[in-house]
Design a protein around this nucleic acid. Sequence first.
DNA 1: TATTTAATAGAACGATCCATAGAAATCAAC
DNA 2: GTTGATTTCTATGGATCGTTCTATTAAATA
Lengths: 205, 205
Amino acid sequence: MSRTRLLSDDVILERAIAVFWRRGYAGASLRDLTEATGLSAAALYHRFVDKDGLFVAALTRYADEGLVERLARLSAFDDPLKAIRALIDELIALSLADPERRGCLLVNTALDGAPMSKAARAVVLKRLAEVEAFFAAQLRRAVATRLLPADTDVPAKAAALLGAVVGVRVLARLDSKAGRLRALADHAMAGLDAPARSLRPKSLQ
Amino acid sequence: MSRTRLLSDDVILERAIAVFWRRGYAGASLRDLTEATGLSAAALYHRFVDKDGLFVAALTRYADEGLVERLARLSAFDDPLKAIRALIDELIALSLADPERRGCLLVNTALDGAPMSKAARAVVLKRLAEVEAFFAAQLRRAVATRLLPADTDVPAKAAALLGAVVGVRVLARLDSKAGRLRALADHAMAGLDAPARSLRPKSLQ
DNA sequence: TATTTAATAGAACGATCCATAGAAATCAAC
DNA sequence: GTTGATTTCTATGGATCGTTCTATTAAATA
């Protein structure tokens, strides 16, 4: 009963993601967005209310696209530790494959200081929490199958792994050769079956 | 032979740092900066040429203030591994002590997508490289004194530690209880004397 | 075909952006 | 007190910001 849309939401968001990814929220102007999407500002506003609405939609789609399938697929691995390592390796490969070195839109947004909506922040928190939950689930499996010691502090290790992933994504934005990122991954995995002990200062024990 | 300055560069940069830290580069308007510093835009431009000049000066001062003394002091530790751990712990304490949860200005800037000068990016790269160099130096000492195995891959481990620090700074911006950050630190230290082995997928060895 | 309804574009909005020009203010040297 | 150098403020420039108004287009329904 109405005019058909020239562009699907999919296409628009795909193009908007590229802009936000490259420029950040505050750095992405409406002009950038209209040029990239091929839609007028009025049309964008008609669909997404305002700039922040478009941003939240873009963020959500970015996570849906890059995270959901990946976590589901890796969760099906027989070896939970290999699932963890595979996730990190895939994110490294993604980072290295991007000639623009844009890192991860979610992580970039987490550090974006520009004033933005609570909704946008909430998306970031929720999606990173999904990654952490994935790690926790795999670690629990690993403990259950005795791949890791029974006294493993699963939440702590899951948080540490999330930190490692974030580290990879940030370093990937700087310059970082492939070797550095892999070193980070190796280090993160090595820390799993090596409970903190000798290296921890006495004062902190 | 001229009019005396109302405010020292120290004071101005201190206040400008607070603005850039809270808002990011693109998010910090000249209005924000003039209000925070108490100086007119013209006066700021007279001293720092343009917004980016002020930003670079602020970034540099931020690093000089937070990094130089700290790295020098910790380098004097007898135990190099304790020096590493102390740096991480101090950064965690700093992160937790900030009620605004602004993280680290250098790391935030590294991820800031907004168009900014090469000079600003260069400052970030240089200062984070200093942290990595500190880690590398301590690791070399640790190897020399047999605290770590002789075959330790120092550059790889240094990069991994830098990644851990970055991870701490990012997670600290999200919500992150103290426990999560300490878990990350524990994990990072644990990975040091545990060379990657069993957990590394066969395909990657 | 006429009507309805959503999607779109163009033009313009006020606000704010970064930046500058010119004058006023201040202090040291003479 | 005059001169000269420098800092500062006021005022404002043009550009761009995010947003909205109005009108047009195109498809679905009647």
